[in-house]
Design a protein around this nucleic acid. Structure first.
Lengths: 370, 370
DNA sequence: TTGTAGGCGTTATCAT
DNA sequence: ATGATAACGCCTACAA
């Protein structure tokens, strides 16, 4: 690395002050066209461009939005590929950030070192998006009084008094359960949830109970949960569920509602290996509507949520807060939508690219609200 | 936001100099335990932690590694979900970066604004990882003389004299073609490539030709390419290929080798809708070994490449360069591996989670090299 | 072990 | 339209 040149060299080389160079490089105005040309020429010649770091210090604006997410990866192959959800959030955040002229700084909070990492990231950002479970609520609050923070869970946001972006888990899942009970007439439903500390999973289970109860059926008190929102997790949970039922001399549930698509895929695998036909013997549903839901056989009935949009909306919220400052807590709840395919028992075209529902399509919408 | 306090307040509050506060906050040593306690207490009380930006300016180390990737998204749903490759690279980069104590700043270079965005990002980072096609080679060179850069393509790295991380596309694809020709005896193979400017796609096609020629068969001069490494792109390319063949009064190829898994999935869809059986009528293969390759039916024979590892290795390379400084260009080539499943015509267990090959498994390895 | 003081590379304020 | 010149918040010799 040759000695990096600074704004001083450029100023001298172009015969103006550093202030003027700064003006030319910034979006600002306040210089003649001739000056602009000379400065740019000098910059090009010296192969210089302004230091984002110095610029950030001086202007109190780094052009960086941080994104903290929980590290769900492990060494197990099946688990590792799992966090497609986070990948989508990252994509959405990136795109909204770029639209606003800043970049996204990502970091996974691994276990105990979470707080330190979070501080390190926060200290470089103008604002922060925090995926649910990436941070405990106390640390969340700490960060929130330093930079604008938006948490990806309406629930958590409410508790910590932090801006939030979430989805309407309840409507989605209730719609799904209503479909299973009313249209297909299933009466023995089981819920296989994700991590017990996932706000989304908790909300989905609550909605599941409501839906089941609303249909006049017996609602289980706790989900058949497992450690992860993963294919492996789903497989293990369903295997356990089946074992337990078998030990009790009971038959498998008529329908298994899973916490997300990946778990549902795991469920499909276990059921298939136990020679239980889906949806003939057991119906299965997911949540998320990832690409895999279309590709797996039978194709997966699920609840779609706009994951990329969640990430994008969160960044927009941070940016808005950056501009606004005061104003009371804001919360955005994005809509979900039931997507009917084959795994619930619906039958329709099985073309490779059939998409979504038909008659029974359900849509639940909720706008943003204060 | 209440007035943020600075190192000065903390110094005063704890009765030491700012230098000492700095020492306590940095990993450094050079202070008594008692001092440390007092400083930490003051920091906690004032609810202060050091500004990463200021720290970066002063220490010339931001703790940020940049990651530039091409924006392959579009508004088309099928295309949008596509860049699973990049998602994996991001994950790998993040994990290696965190291990080294820094975070990853990501940005997608969209079209013409690419250069400006790249400079903005580079000006905030200690080093940069650039995914192939994210930047033209000229801009790549510009950045490389400012911060350490590692490009994700051995080919590009060689041309621009920049450190690189790549995979052994050739061995993988040659192994695949050898399998198709020798084991299955296919003689009419077609190649459906990705974007014409993708170094990976180019290399894979070159290897395809070699492999076909080595089997004494006629090698096409150009791939049946399409705009994107996407499911939609694969579908369109294969549909075109089939149409063209049909117009010429020819039968479909006996095997279609696709540029990546997503294109292969698109191929599967088109073939199915045209009532061509895979692998009975036409064999199909992919590249990458994404999760979807296991889930799609028939399961996809493909070439595995360690995508996450690519991202991780790239970050390690820039970190190494950060420490080293001089030293000549380095290039790491990661191994690929043929993974045999059903879509090539191999038959074996169809359990939902069957993984990879059996007898015919091929492995090609290549260590790192100067 | 601790303090002093001079940067780090820009931006922003106030003049001119 | 342009120039001085303080910040910006911290690190790091150099001294003590």
């Amino acid at each position: 690395m040759p000695e990096r040149s600074t704004i001083y060299e450029v100023a001298r080389q172009s015969g103006v002050s550093t202030a003027t160079v700064s003006r030319v490089m910034g979006n600002g105005t306040g210089f003649s066209e001739a000056t602009r040309t000379r400065v740019l020429a000098a910059a090009a010649e010296l192969d210089w461009f302004p230091s984002g770091t110095a610029r950030g210090l001086a202007s109190r604006r780094n052009g960086i939005i941080g994104l903290l997410f929980p590290d769900l990866g492990s060494s197990d192959d099946l688990e590792v590929e799992s966090p497609l959800y986070v990948d989508q959030v990252i994509r959405g955040a990136e795109s909204a950030a770029t639209a606003d002229g800043d970049a996204v700084l990502i970091a996974a909070t691994r276990g105990a070192s979470g707080r330190a990492l979070a501080l390190a990231v926060a200290s470089k950002c103008d604002g922060l998006v925090v995926v649910a479970r990436a941070l405990n609520e106390s640390d969340l609050a700490t960060l929130a009084q330093r930079v604008p923070v938006v948490v990806l869970s309406d629930q958590v946001g409410r508790r910590t008094n932090v801006d939030a972006v979430g989805v309407d888990n309840r409507s989605g899942l209730r719609g799904l359960v209503a479909h299973l009970t009313s249209v297909h007439g299933y009466t023995d439903l089981a819920f296989v949830g994700g991590p017990a500390d996932s706000p989304d999973s908790i909300e989905r289970f609550a909605a599941f109970r409501q839906g089941v109860a609303a249909a006049g059926l017996h609602a289980p008190r706790a989900p058949d949960a497992d450690g992860g929102f993963t294919e492996g997790g789903g497989a293990r949970a369903v295997a356990d569920l089946l074992d337990r039922r078998s030990d009790q001399g009971r038959t498998p549930p008529r329908a298994i509602v899973c916490g997300n698509d990946e778990m549902a895929v795991g469920a499909l695998g276990v059921l298939s290996s136990q020679h239980l036909h889906v949806p003939g013997d057991v119906a299965v549903t997911g949540f998320d509507d990832l690409a895999i839901a279309r590709h797996v056989r039978p194709s997966l009935t699920t609840v779609a949520q706009p994951i990329r949009e969640i990430g994008a909306e969160a960044v927009r919220a941070v940016v808005a807060r950056l501009a606004d400052g005061a104003a009371q807590r804001r919360s955005v709840v994005l809509p979900t939508r039931v997507v009917l395919r084959s795994s619930c028992g619906c039958t329709h075209g099985h073309g490779h690219r059939e998409t979504a529902a038909g008659d029974e399509q359900q849509t639940s919408r909720a706008g943003s609200r204060a």
